[in-house]
């Protein structure tokens, strides 16, 4: 009988521990998340999609802006997965590179702007909650994730653009 009680206690203990984690996430993250996402959602509505698209079209020609500002804007304003629709402003040969840059930014943005991809929040939050557990501030990690993210998507854009061009050349195809 006593052994059974021990097993039951251990069994419940697993989920008591899980419950503690759940409550700490609910009270620690959700309130900030809700107000932050509400503010950003409202901002996006105030700016309006048309204005954003007009600006996006202007910066497609520059190779640096094409794989930094354009994808960051796309992910911030249109969020995952509608961000990829900005590809339509680009010539065919740049589309794979733009997609690569944009999709690679849907996680680095999460530390600062979780509205962009709330369904995949835990790519960032999973690691971040370890940092929180150590009572270290999250700000430095979030900002560095964002900045390194921009460097990485720029690099990805360039590399994928070159690979696409090489593959097109090998095919003798003009897109």
């Amino acid at each position: 009988m006593e052994t059974l009680a021990h097993i039951a206690e251990g069994f419940i203990g697993l989920f008591k521990e899980g419950g503690k984690v759940f409550v700490s996430l609910l009270t620690g993250i959700i309130p900030t998340l809700i107000t932050l996402i509400t503010a950003v959602n409202a901002l996006i509505k105030f700016v309006g999609q048309e204005r954003i698209e007009r600006f996006a079209q202007k910066i497609t020609g520059n190779i640096v802006l094409r794989y930094t500002v354009l994808p960051v804007m796309a992910v911030f304003f249109l969020t995952n997965p509608m961000a990829y629709t900005f590809g339509r402003f680009l010539p065919e040969k740049y589309k794979p590179a733009f997609y690569d840059a944009a999709v690679s930014f849907v996680h680095p943005i999460l530390g600062l702007f979780p509205h962009a991809n709330p369904a995949e929040l835990f790519v960032y939050m999973g690691i971040a909650q370890g940092i929180q557990k150590l009572n270290l501030p999250l700000g430095p990690l979030a900002i560095r994730y964002f900045l390194v993210g921009i460097i990485v998507i720029f690099l990805r854009g360039i590399v994928t653009e070159k690979i696409t061009q090489a593959m097109l050349a090998r095919r003798g195809s003009e897109l």
């Binding site: 997965p81 509608m82 990829y84 590809g87 065919e92 589309k95 997609y99 696409t164 097109l168 897109l175």
Partner: peptide, 20 residues
């Protein structure tokens, strides 16, 4: 899917997948 959202042509998608 992402390339289709960006209105890419089928040939672009064919090349884009291995390129990425």
């Amino acid at each position: 899917v992402g390339l289709t959202l960006g209105e890419a042509k089928p040939e672009t998608i064919e090349i884009g997948v291995p390129a990425v």
